[in-house]
Amino acid sequence: MLDGVDLDLAAGDIAELRGPSGAGKTTLLLAIARLLPGAGGSLTLAGEAADSVDPAVWRTRVALLPQRTALFPGSVEENLLLPFALKARDGVRPPSTETLRTALDDVGLADVALDRDTARLSVGQAARVALLRVLLTAPRVLMLDEPDASLDDASAAAVAAMTARFAEAGGAVLRVSHLRADAAATVRLHLESGALAGGDRDDA
């Protein structure tokens, strides 16, 4: 499905990937997260080849937030702490309750209690909690698959701000966009029929 796609991301980049539906945008993200069975090609992160890293550990560094928000049954706090209970993050200290509280406040979720059941979140709140869950794990690369596809403008703006802050702190972002263009994007990519075009950096 993908053919000869070559992509480089640097720390601080926000790469925006556009293209018609069916062009392979999601497939590309899955391949980079090593979530695509039978994918070929080579991946490197900071000089380290993907093959030399355990796939689960790779995914803790190259994080993908799937398009469909998937919070698990339970509280917001349980969801935010869940990644730290995984073997791939053995030895990583989970954030404290205060850190979680501050993090929620910072993304406009001051009115969401940590013990709120995830079933009682709005679509926009759930999307932000899901993004926060990934961001708290401090990955090197963050990939977002149409993060604002089903969001209202306020939630979409919050998601864009969270993404921008992650990039400012030295992370690299690759996001698939469909509806809205991300004003903060530094790299614009276009995928059509499995081939990649663009890659112009408009450094601000």
């Binding site: 997260a33 979530l35 689960a56 550990v57 995914r59 803790t60 994080a63 993908l64 937030l65 799937p66 469909r68 998937a70 698990f72 869940l82 990644p83 995984l86 073997k87 791939a88 993050r89 899901a130 869950r133 990934v134 794990t137």
Partner: peptide
């Protein structure tokens, strides 16, 4: 399957 994709993307192994 959606939940499993999210979990795997967060670094979960097969058992998790």
């Amino acid at each position: 399957s959606g939940e499993i994709l999210a979990l795997t993307a967060l670094g979960a192994d097969r058992w998790e």
